[in-house]
Amino acid sequence: MTLRIIDRIGMGFFLGLPILWIVLFMLVPYGVLLTYSFWIKSYPLFEPAFQFGNYLTLLNEPQYLSVIGRTLKIAVIVSVTALVLAYPFAYFLVFRLKNATIRKVLFFGVIAPLWVSYLLRAYLWKTILGTQGVLNSTLMGLGIIGEPLDVFLYSQAAMVITLTYIFIPFMVMPIYAALEKIPRNLDEASADLGQSSWTTFWRVTVPLSLPGVVAGFTLTFCLCFGDFVAAFLVGGPDGLMVANVITSQFGAALDWPLGSALAVVMLVVVLAIISLSDRFEQRAKVQF
């Protein structure tokens, strides 16, 4: 009996602080965010109100919808690109590479950039793609182009390259983990049943690795969707993202309520993606 009471105290000890933290620094701030999104901008900052004006502005002014659309588009392209690049790599590591040490080293080689400054990794591409940058001078040195091109930097393509570069570790990690969990005897079984390795790949390996793919896609998509650093460095006006617009509402434009409404939209989109992928994961769970 006493043991149980002590265990209960223990549970309170372990749970108390985290719950307090979640309520104080997540739930309450999200609530405040939602509240502010109904307020009205007024000099010098804003005043309390309950109206949907900010949301209507987002719907009615085409610039906001087009920014949201562009952000979705870039996030999808980046996630697909990262997936296409990451999957063969992870597959090679898990299924083709026999040497466990080399496998670990290569896996680590892809994950290690996460430890290197994210800002720096975006900046790298600014130095490479710029008019006076490394790519232009390389191409000129090789005689491929006569004078520097300014098409590389400040474009959506630059955004896609940079964001893919930054977020690809987030795609490799879950796919690698999912592939590693697939029992090898399934491969053998499929081969014994006369399937070619190609069929085995598409009908055994790919379906079983889908949870990892979905997890990687979700992470990459959400992180891209909320990014403003890459757009600031390599995006230009054509690569402006939702997060950049939010930033300017809290900066120069000084319209906190509108910025909050946009942030709520972002939060809703991200939560929707996360819960979709959760639902998928629940359904795809396979017991071995």
Binding site: P29, L33, D227, A243, S260, A263
Partner: peptide
């Protein structure tokens, strides 16, 4: 998974 900007704001 939540963009830092949402936490920040």
């Amino acid at each position: 998974a939540l963009p830092g900007i949402v936490t920040g704001i």
